[in-house]
Computed example of a mutant assay.
Amino acid sequence: MTESINRVAVVTGGSRGIGAAIVRRLASKGVHVAFTYANNGGAAERTMAEVREAGGSAKAYAADAGDASAIQDVVHRVSSETGRLDIMVANAGIMLAGPPGDVSIDAFDRLMAVNVRGVFFAATAAARVMPEGGRIISIGSCLAERSAGPGTTAYTLTKAALVGMTRGLAYDFAPRGITVNLVHPGPTDTDMNPAASERAAQQRTKIALGRYGSADEIASAVAYLASPAASFITGAALAVDGGFAA
Rank of each mutant, 00 (worst) to 15 (best):
residue 59 K to W: 12
residue 60 A to N: 06
residue 62 A to I: 12
residue 68 A to E: 13
residue 73 D to N: 15
residue 75 V to T: 04
residue 75 V to K: 01
residue 76 H to N: 13
residue 76 H to W: 09
residue 81 E to R: 00
residue 81 E to C: 01
residue 84 R to C: 10
residue 86 D to N: 04
residue 89 V to A: 07
residue 91 N to R: 06
residue 93 G to C: 13
residue 94 I to F: 00
residue 98 G to N: 09
residue 99 P to G: 14
residue 99 P to H: 15
residue 102 D to E: 15
residue 104 S to R: 10
residue 106 D to Y: 07
residue 106 D to G: 05
residue 113 A to C: 03
residue 116 V to I: 15
residue 117 R to M: 08
residue 118 G to P: 04
residue 118 G to Q: 03
residue 119 V to F: 06
residue 124 T to F: 10
residue 126 A to T: 09
residue 128 R to M: 12
residue 130 M to Q: 01
residue 133 G to Y: 02
residue 134 G to E: 00
residue 136 I to F: 02
residue 137 I to T: 03
residue 139 I to W: 03
residue 141 S to K: 08
residue 141 S to N: 06
residue 144 A to C: 10
residue 148 A to R: 06
residue 150 P to H: 07
residue 150 P to E: 07
residue 152 T to Y: 12
residue 152 T to A: 12
residue 156 T to F: 06
residue 157 L to T: 15
residue 158 T to S: 13
residue 160 A to G: 15
residue 162 L to H: 02
residue 164 G to P: 04
residue 165 M to C: 06
residue 166 T to L: 05
residue 166 T to F: 03
residue 167 R to L: 09
residue 167 R to K: 15
residue 168 G to E: 08
residue 171 Y to N: 12
residue 171 Y to F: 10
residue 172 D to G: 00
residue 173 F to V: 02
residue 178 I to H: 01
residue 179 T to P: 01
residue 179 T to N: 14
residue 183 V to F: 13
residue 183 V to D: 11
residue 188 T to L: 08
residue 190 T to W: 09
residue 190 T to H: 12
residue 198 E to I: 05
residue 199 R to C: 02
residue 203 Q to I: 11
